[in-house]
Design a protein around this nucleic acid. Structure first.
Length: 572
RNA sequence: GCGCCUGUAGCUCAGUGGAUAGAGCGCUCGCCUCCGGAGCGAGAGGCCGCAGGUUCGAAUCCUGCCAGGCGCACCA
């Protein structure tokens, strides 16, 4: 945590470190809310030392109705059965205790409904909480992962035999946003793309290019898009080149195209892992994986093939690793790849897969355990499909039918920011219907612009105020007798919920929550902007406080958008 | 047949045990002497797929059913 700037500046004014230390006293100093939570927990413990810690989960949440206070807890409802008292009676006792524990921080604590405790926070608490956001600096919202792990996120991993389409784009946007989120939460994250450059499909690409270069029909099951013709023209002597060499050239160029498309989309990888590396060397990584499985006693020979006993780990049936023909199955490559990942020493492996691979989840988990891994160290996240819709008709993406929208086209039609928002605003386990014509028409209605606009508007206001005034306001101490307008209070609370939103998004692997949060935050800011004049408002302390609110909102919006890979423009 | 995902406002979707279920878009009606109107306010619009169950409390958990998507290879 960054030091209080007053201390660094050697200022004579009393620094806010005192109140901050108090606010941060809870075990997870990610937000001033930690203190409230800790107080509730302490009061609950005092009431029932025996009522098992952690046998229930008490919550501190923002009630929907304004009349129910700023925050509320269900602690009394959860404690009542253990204490053998009515929830309301428990709530009364908890409330009394908390009123004294939180002296000066809350205006009142009320018992309501079946036994909820509602907290009405003091304006002073809210005003100082805003300062906390600013003082946190780059640490705002960062950290909190428990425990922090070394995580490998493998995503996209599209076959390099065709262009990236919007389904891959969804996977890319999701994997990228998830990686950013995990990193901000304190994990050490590496991103990897697995390139299927080995086997039948890769060879079909080579054959297709060669056929094209010779002016022949594409082979059975081959590829025939425009890109095949481009490759045939690009690669010198494609018509007569050795097929293996041509395949290699073709794959290399397709990977370059894929990389370029993804880069344009704002997605970068730490490593591109090529499948052919699993099959080279002695012993190859595949053979090595077979050895490991044999040592673990999980493989056997039958009917001339090598089998893996995945049924030991809940799979429906055992799976073939090496066919009776001597060829390795695709599954064998995947196992070797996962073993290779394990040996690199990650605490957790995450694979982001398309919905068409979900049948593979059970057997991969089984294989992972067969290798000696713990099942919960491997996460296979399934992305549901993007369906294309045109004139009301729905169709799956298919190159043959022409129902195909590439990532490049999507970016060209609606831009990176709108595209990423569109793909990330929905949960990964719901299918998306994309009508590209409609998306183009409506792209200016994309909520992403509303969020960006709020950011640009704040930037404009701060520019108008001038750097000197803004810097001074950022460091100023807010007087304890502040009186906040309702929309100011709402904005502060929305800002403070940022770390919790991130924690929730991380645990659920749900970056779409950040999009929802960003929109709500922009709305809270816009309401504040509507109700509260900032520039030139009297007295000066009020202007100062509101500048702080603007800064906090600007920073939090920017950070939310950054997690989604969306730009936060200073003007638009 | 078996498995996974989904079913919430006209449309696209949030909301995985709490109080009167939300947002965006669309629709209706208001609002541009005011820090950026890509905006603001008000309103209409819901058997939360259906039926049971669990409990103080269920859109949320359990069971069954219905509908849609996707899988169930010694294919890749």
């Amino acid at each position: 945590m960054r030091l209080c700037p007053h201390a660094a500046a050697g200022g004579v004014r009393r620094c806010q470190a005192g109140i901050l230390r108090k606010l941060m006293s809870a075990e997870a100093p990610t937000s001033p809310l930690s203190e409230l939570r800790a107080a509730v927990r302490a009061a609950a413990a005092a009431l029932s030392s025996s009522a098992g810690e952690g046998s229930f989960r008490l919550t501190l949440e923002r009630p929907k109705k304004a009349g129910f206070g700023d925050y509320s807890t269900n602690a009394a409802l959860l404690l009542a059965p253990a204490l053998g008292q009515s929830p309301r009676a428990v709530a009364e006792r908890l409330g009394e205790d908390l009123t004294s524990r939180l002296d000066g921080l809350v205006d009142s604590v009320e018992v309501a409904g079946p036994g909820f405790l509602n907290f009405f926070l003091s304006d002073a608490w809210l005003a100082r909480a805003t300062s906390f956001v600013l003082l946190a600096g780059d640490d705002w919202g960062a950290g909190g992962a428990e425990p922090a792990e070394r995580i490998l996120v493998e995503f996209v991993s599209a076959n390099p035999t065709g262009p990236m389409h919007v389904g891959h784009a969804r996977n890319a946007a999701y994997g990228d946003a998830l990686s950013r989120l995990l990193a901000l939460r304190g994990h050490s994250v590496e991103r990897e793309f697995y390139v299927n450059d080995f086997g039948t499909q890769a060879r079909k690409l080579g054959e297709s290019i060669q056929a094209r270069a010779r002016g022949q029909q594409a082979p059975e099951g081959g590829y025939q898009g425009e890109y095949v013709a481009e490759l045939a023209a690009e690669i010198p002597r494609a018509a007569e080149m050795d097929l293996d060499q041509l395949t290699g050239e073709g794959i290399e160029r397709m990977v370059a195209r894929t990389r370029a498309s993804l880069e344009k989309f704002g997605v970068a990888f730490d490593r591109w892992f090529f499948e052919h590396k699993l099959h080279s060397g002695t012993p190859s990584l595949v053979e090595h994986a077979f050895d490991v499985l044999e040592e673990q006693g999980r493989s056997y020979r039958s009917e001339g093939a090598l089998w893996l006993r995945t049924s030991d780990f809940g799979d429906d049936k055992d799976r073939v690793l090496e066919r009776s023909s001597g060829d390795h199955t695709y599954f064998a490559s995947d196992i070797a790849y996962h073993q290779e990942k394990r040996e690199r020493g990650f605490d957790r492996l995450i694979d982001v897969l398309g919905a068409d691979h979900h049948g593979y989840v059970g057997r991969m988990h089984a294989a992972f355990q067969a290798l000696g891994g713990e099942s919960d160290r491997l996460e296979l996240l399934i992305m549901q499909f993007v369906h294309l819709v045109s004139r009301g008709e729905r169709s799956s993406m298919s190159k043959r039918s022409g129902h195909f929208v590439t990532l490049d086209e999507l970016i060209e039609e609606i831009g990176v920011d709108a595209a990423r928002w569109y793909l990330l605003a929905r949960s990964h386990d719901t299918t998306i219907d994309l009508d590209i014509d409609l998306a183009r028409e409506q792209s200016s209605d994309n909520p992403v612009y509303y969020v960006q606009y709020a950011h640009a508007r704040i930037s404009s206001m701060l520019d108008r105020l001038g750097e000197q005034r803004v810097t001074q306001a950022a460091q100023a101490e807010v007087p304890g007798d502040a009186r906040l307008e309702p929309s100011e209070r709402e904005l502060v609370k929305k800002l403070l919920s940022f770390p919790d939103e991130l924690a929730e998004a991380e645990v659920r692997r749900a970056p779409h929550r950040i999009a929802a949060y960003a929109l709500e935050l922009a709305q809270a800011f816009t309401a504040f902007y509507r109700d509260c004049k900032v520039i030139g408002v009297e007295p000066e302390e009020v202007e100062t406080r509101r500048i702080q609110l603007c800064l906090g909102a600007q920073k939090t919006i920017a950070r939310s958008l950054e997690l989604l890979g969306v730009s936060a423009p200073r003007s638009m």
